[in-house]
């Protein structure tokens, strides 16, 4: 079924060190994401593939930074990372959902890293 994500963010803030993004939504919820977290959960097909089994575990992004933010229409932002990754369109929905599931996603990432013998 078609679903529309109704919540809009009111503020998107990138810190001075460019390694942490804080997004505040209309419902008052505020999420902070490290640049590394955003990079490894990027909605880009480069990371997510086209199906769950194609999803990649991206190693070595501990020190990645966000160089700039561009808005995409009224529904998303595009983040430009300093490792050249710029194909992820972070919709409000994606940001809200990854914010809500931050710890779960982060633990999964760490587990996958260990499983595959990769390092941050």
């Amino acid at each position: 079924m078609f679903e529309v994500f109704e919540l809009n963010p009111t503020e998107i803030r990138l810190n001075k060190d460019k390694d942490q993004l804080t997004v505040t939504f209309e419902d008052g919820k505020s999420f902070s994401y490290s640049a590394e977290f955003l990079r490894i959960t990027s909605p880009s097909a480069e990371v997510q593939g086209h199906a769950e089994h194609q999803r990649k575990t991206v190693p070595g992004k501990k020190n990645v930074k966000i160089e700039s933010i561009e808005s995409v229409g009224n529904y998303a932002i595009q983040l430009n990372f300093d490792d050249g990754h710029d194909t992820g369109i972070f919709s409000w929905k994606h940001l809200y959902e990854t914010g809500m599931n931050h710890d779960k996603l982060w633990d999964r990432y760490l587990d996958e890293m260990q499983e595959k013998g990769l390092s941050r």
């Binding site: 809009n8 803030r13 990138l14 808005s71 009224n74």
Partner: peptide, 10 residues
């Protein structure tokens, strides 16, 4: 004011 949010780069 449903327009795009404020984007702040510190």
């Amino acid at each position: 004011n449903v327009y795009t949010p404020k984007i702040i780069v510190e």
